[in-house]
Design a protein around this nucleic acid. Structure first.
Lengths: 136, 136
DNA sequence: ATTAATTTGCAACCAAGTTGCATTAGTTGT
DNA sequence: ACAACTAATGCAACTTGGTTGCAAATTAAT
């Protein structure tokens, strides 16, 4: 309830388009990462797939969401926590359950290996395995 | 020179098809990972793209090469060191230089984070940055 | 040598993602 | 309130990585 109120206020103040709001709100409420095909399917009644792609690009540039490429070659999106515009420092690992397919962001700091003579700008870490519910 | 001899002997003993040999030999000689588009382009005079895809699948299943998905959504291949058939335990990180585009396997053991209640089967780690030559 | 099994090429297809352009919606100035 | 402008959206066509079905060719088996 509070969440909806906050979203409503944010919508009123920032004044974005209806489409951008729809997708933004979806990410606010979603706990897991979502693939781009899923998003296009999910919003196909409300907007064109081109629009979905464009809004996702925009939201990513604005630091609202971040993306990564899954083992399925698809682009997956999830909301950012602590990412600034154009500077996604929050390169946490992503976990995909190969049983139920669910993808989630892991709240873990990565310790990147120090490689001689290589300057690493960011890391993409995808962990694949079984989630809690599927391993029971 | 020794390398060529070894390849020749291996070719004679294992008796694979010409196409499989061409691609296998390419990976023996190549130091870096190669994208699938590059491979199709590289062998387009010698064989059909369907054949390339099929051989890559086969070689990966046989544990000769391994693949990973790059930030460009493309499938990249590199030769395996110490991978057994169907069991790619050697999940080392891959590094892609975002200046020259070169992709290489890093001979580094990964320390995967222990996540509660998640059983992680494998990890895909892609590091992006600048390589030695490009950072000078 | 004839048959059976594998491999390859080809064309058509599928799906993710992009582009150009016309249309609509939203903003601003007068 | 209306015209003029700007930004957002829809649509269709296109590009590209990847797959599939089937026929032709090559290789292996009897």
């Amino acid at each position: 309830m509070q969440l909806y109120f906050i979203i409503f206020v944010a919508m009123s103040i920032i004044r974005r388009t209806k489409s951008v709001n729809d997708i933004t709100q979806f990410f606010e409420e979603s706990k897991y990462a979502v693939s781009v095909v899923n998003l296009v399917e999910r919003f196909k009644e409300k907007m064109n797939k081109t629009t979905v792609y464009r809004i996702l690009d925009k939201l990513e540039n604005d630091g609202v969401i971040h993306s990564f490429i899954g083992r399925d070659s698809l682009k997956w999106y999830a909301k950012c926590q602590g990412c600034q515009s154009g500077h996604h420092t929050d390169t946490h690992p992503h976990f995909q359950c190969n049983s139920c397919g669910r993808v989630e962001c892991l709240p873990v700091k990565l310790q990147l290996p120090e490689i001689q003579n290589l300057s690493i700008e960011y890391a993409e870490v995808n962990l694949v395995g079984k989630c809690t519910e599927c391993s029971n």
